[in-house]
Amino acid sequence: MKKILILLSILAFTFHDAVSQDAGDVETNGMLAFNYAISTGFGSTSDYIDNVSFRGFNFDYRRRLSSNVSAGVLIGWTHFYQKLDRDLYTAPDNPNVAVNAVQTRVLSSIPISLQGHYYFTQNSGIDPYVGFGMGAYRIEYEKWWGAIQDRDDQWKFGLNLQAGTTVPITKDYLGFNFALVYHWIPYTYNEVDGISYLNLNLGLYLNF
């Protein structure tokens, strides 16, 4: 994890320099947040995996269109993982077959989503916001019966809702980003009938 944070930091500053040059340093109207995400599923997602996910992160790039509206892109990765104790299951396609197995369940979601945000204050210090996003979600489902894998990958159209706040560390440049992001993706496979999960984003943002 430490390596990942170092990598993100290096990328943040590289990216900041590159974008600053592109924009000619005219004014600070872009923001890039790097968030670590803790996640929990709901509905059939939590029925499938009820473990809280501590493997997740996302990039949240925004550009101000006006003093309290921005548009941007969210790209992320959330990874749910649960290894269950040995148990007895009915085969999903045959009620006469019983399978005693150690099951490992995995669910990954990779959103590439267009975002819109509304800010309740106008760039003055702590800046709470709400947001809405929609885009493509790559869903990767795995169910392992012992070492036998049942896998499914799909691209799906999905939606997300955000509420969060930025908290500046330095004026106009660097700060913390805290947000709750609820994702919904109409993915169905086996017992999963619609994916919904909540990211708790804890991150740093850069203004440029």
């Binding site: 990942i4 493997r55 990874h79 993982y81 290894k83 040995r86 085969a91 077959v97 019983a98 399978v99 005693n100 197995a101 150690v102 490992t104 995995v106 990954s108 795995e142 392992w144 019966w145 012992g146 070492a147 036998i148 894998q149």
Partner: peptide, 18 residues
């Protein structure tokens, strides 16, 4: 960096009784 479920199993845990 995500864990590989196949490597996260002992030989006994791979057993299936069907």
């Amino acid at each position: 960096c995500a864990p590989d479920p196949a490597r996260d199993l002992t030989a006994e845990e791979t057993d299936l009784i069907i």
